[in-house]
């Protein structure tokens, strides 16, 4: 029991107190009216030479007492109902607060007055209102996050899907495709299909991560950098460097890392100027891993919505690793630095 609860007065006690105050004041008024009223009558009779015998005095005294009692009783009722009415008005305020919550207006607060059970009730309603508001806000935030996840994953699914479409189109159109080329294309299609499956699995699991421990994660990043190079070397002049990474151990979700590189590749394909050099460097610095990619921007390049979504997707993944994404861009130049710290 808190100190406040110990000190809390009972509503019944307050009502009894009102009755007591009203009764005491009514009694004072009655005594005052009867005493001063009698004195006034005596004074009036003396001034106007009116003589009243004992019976007449008894009669006048009775009238004064009755009038005094009636006035005091009326006074008691008015005062009591005025004081009690204030409490009733507070009950109405509390009811309005409950109605507001019922109507979905959770920010509404009932003003705290006094220190009795009604105050406690108002506090409980305010607490309920605040809790409901917090829950609603949390629900809204979670829904927004879920929507964002669905949006970014849907965007990321498009990257391998586009590759599959390109390879299958190539297989359909080209009449002279060697068996080795066919196998290579089909292997790529299979790889991209697996990637789509991974992404849809994440989507179905609500963004669950599958972390794998790598005793030497440097090899993983070297492989990703190699894949990046082999995917883009036919179209772009690349400068890829991953040798600056020292040997280190860590837990990573390979799918997530692949999505970072896929998004970088998609952006390069869409917006990078093929005439200029495209650079990618993976390096280690102060217990964090830094992926830096830069390129010259093709005329009529960003911004496009999918470009932003790709960056958002990278940002989300970096946040999963306690990292951050810094983008420096001008009309002619683009540079992105992805830092991963918590692995």
């Amino acid at each position: 029991m808190t100190e406040n609860e110990k000190k809390r007065r009972k509503l019944l006690f307050e009502i009894l107190l009102f009755v007591g105050i009203c009764f005491a004041l009514s009694l004072v008024l009655y005594v005052f009216l009867v005493t001063v009223g009698s004195l006034l009558i005596q004074e009036y009779c003396l001034t106007n030479d009116i003589y009243l015998d004992e019976f007449e005095w008894y009669h006048v005294d009775n009238i004064i007492r009755s009038a005094g009692f009636a006035v005091s009783a009326l006074f008691f009722m008015i005062l009591f109902f005025a004081l009690f009415g204030e409490r009733l008005a507070y009950v109405r305020k509390i009811t309005a607060g409950v109605d507001a919550i019922r109507g979905g207006n959770y920010g509404n607060q009932v003003e705290l007055r006094g220190n009795n059970e009604l105050t406690e009730l108002a506090e409980a309603i305010n607490y309920l209102s605040e809790s409901e508001q917090r829950i609603k806000e949390k629900e809204k935030r979670l829904n927004a996050e879920k929507e964002e996840l669905i949006r970014t994953l849907s965007h990321d699914i498009r990257t391998p899907l586009t590759s599959i479409m390109s390879y299958t189109e190539l297989l359909c159109k080209q009449e002279t495709v060697t068996e080795a080329e066919q196998r290579a294309y089909l292997a790529l299609v299979a790889k991209k299909t697996a990637q789509i499956k991974e992404l849809t699995d994440i989507l179905l699991d609500g963004g669950r991560r599958e972390l794998e421990f790598f005793a030497d994660a440097r090899l993983l990043f070297a492989q990703l950098a190699d894949e990046f190079e082999s995917e883009l070397e036919d179209t772009f002049d690349l400068a890829v460097s991953s040798s600056e990474v020292p040997a280190f151990a860590g837990s990573f979700d390979v799918g997530e890392l692949r999505r970072i590189f896929d998004n970088l590749m998609t952006n390069i394909r869409k917006y990078a100027d093929p005439a200029e050099k495209v650079t990618l460097s993976v390096s280690g610095a102060q217990e964090s891993l830094v992926i830096r990619q830069s390129n010259a921007v093709r005329k009529g390049g960003p911004p496009a919505e999918s470009y932003r979504m790709g960056l958002n997707s990278i940002r989300r993944i970096a946040q999963n690793y306690g990292g951050e994404v810094v983008v420096t861009e001008t009309a002619a130049w683009f540079e992105i630095t992805v830092t991963l710290s918590d692995f």
Binding site: L29, F32, L33, G37, A67, V71
Partner: peptide, 11 residues
Amino acid sequence: LLIIVFMTLAA
């Protein structure tokens, strides 16, 4: 009248 005024005023 005096008594009525007095009682009304006092109350």
